[in-house]
Write a protein that binds this DNA or RNA. Structure first.
Lengths: 211, 211
DNA sequence: ACGCACATGTAAGCAGTTACATGATTTG
DNA sequence: CAAATCATGTAACTGCTTACATGTGCGT
């Protein structure tokens, strides 16, 4: 039957803001969910259709001359379902970070391979930071969609920017460390690595980061 | 045919270290991959069997009195495949953070719901930090499995601890912010939120974090 | 008039999860 | 000696992705 997923509620919450066509939802998923709940565009069509089928959304077909499209809006039942879900336990955070896995396996590859991986991470982090900062500036200019929700959204922007900058500076640290290596073998690297390990005390870090 | 996934290579890299039984692999996945490539235990059995079927691993049945078990080791072809994969482009980082999604939707729920979500995040972050710090201490005591790889692994521990502490301090910031609210509505929260948004400049943050 | 990006989906396949099954070993 | 936990998987389902399909409007 109708076992809804987190993705369902992500869409439902978008519909709670205003009606959207399926295409708009699929397009805007980048801006809204890419970094906290990434899903492929094509899934959005199926999902919103499912919401309509079980009565949580209402789809209205528009035949405005051009190709027909369906505009979806939330129903009272949909809003009730959303509110209820917001009180249920959340699933744990889950990160897929293939590059980190490769760093873990670094001794089986070459220094060049490792360096390429970490530099790709850095490039992607730079790009993601630019994107997030662009959104931040929309809010600062007062020009963001749903600007009135800035009090909640600043909390998500807060996390994302800290998260992305954490990746950036980690990649930079890793690059300058690997730069000092001749290869990926353990030889002559143990003492230095142990010293680094010592400096990673979470409590000290928390003092530094929590201002 | 044999389209291998990242999960396949994660297991292959474990086998490159030493032979393991499927059960050991499934058990140890927590320690090794939970935070960068999370997968269910049951999938490990199917995956390692597949690796054996295509010749990248060799399974040896042991009949030592008790229940029979299969111990897997990597083959030369497996090692070659692993090395080659380490030179291919990496997939992007992907994070599923349902709690952040709920913060995003906070205006549709109550303050109590929101607070419960963020406090759950904080509790889980605390727990994950303890786990990661435990592993760090194993390396410091020189008692970690595969201690000789500390030069590579310190890079992953570096990222994970920074990542987890970032979650911790974010949750703390979010809690003290929400504490100042009467409810989840925008009323009277816009100016303060805009001020917070202003302070989230990534460049300034990068200066602070990259020491 | 042609090509390309926009707009709107459908279909098939599969990686991964949840749930179950079952013998062996330890523990209270 | 009963119950829990360890050890070792199998079976069935499903959410998601990849790949495809097709009409429409616009720039050149």
């Amino acid at each position: 039957m109708a076992r809804l997923t987190t993705t369902s509620y992500a869409i439902l919450a978008q519909l709670a803001l205003k009606p959207w066509s399926a295409y708009e939802l699929a397009e805007q998923r980048v801006r809204y969910f890419q970094y906290m709940w990434p899903r492929a565009e094509s899934g959005i069509y199926r999902e919103v259709k499912r919401l309509a089928a079980i009565g949580l959304a209402a789809g209205e077909k528009e035949e405005s001359g051009s190709r027909p499209r369906t505009v979806y809006s939330i129903t009272p039942e949909g809003l009730a379902a959303l509110r209820e879900w917001l009180g249920s336990p959340v699933t744990r955070i889950a990160m897929e970070f293939e590059a980190l896995l490769r760093v873990f396996m670094a001794p089986f590859g070459t220094k060049e391979q490792l360096m390429a991986v970490v530099e790709q991470v850095k490039a992607e982090a730079d790009e993601m930071v630019e994107f997030a900062d662009g959104i931040r500036h929309e809010y600062l200019r007062g020009a963001a969609p749903f600007q009135q929700h800035v009090h909640a959204r600043v909390l998500t922007v807060d996390f994302l920017i800290h998260f992305l900058v954490t990746i950036q500076v980690w990649a930079e640290r890793a690059i300058s460390e690997i730069d000092t290596w001749d290869d990926t073998s353990p030889e002559g690297k143990v003492d230095r690595a142990t010293g680094r390990m010592k400096s990673l005390d979470p409590r000290a870090l928390r003092e530094r980061l929590g201002s």
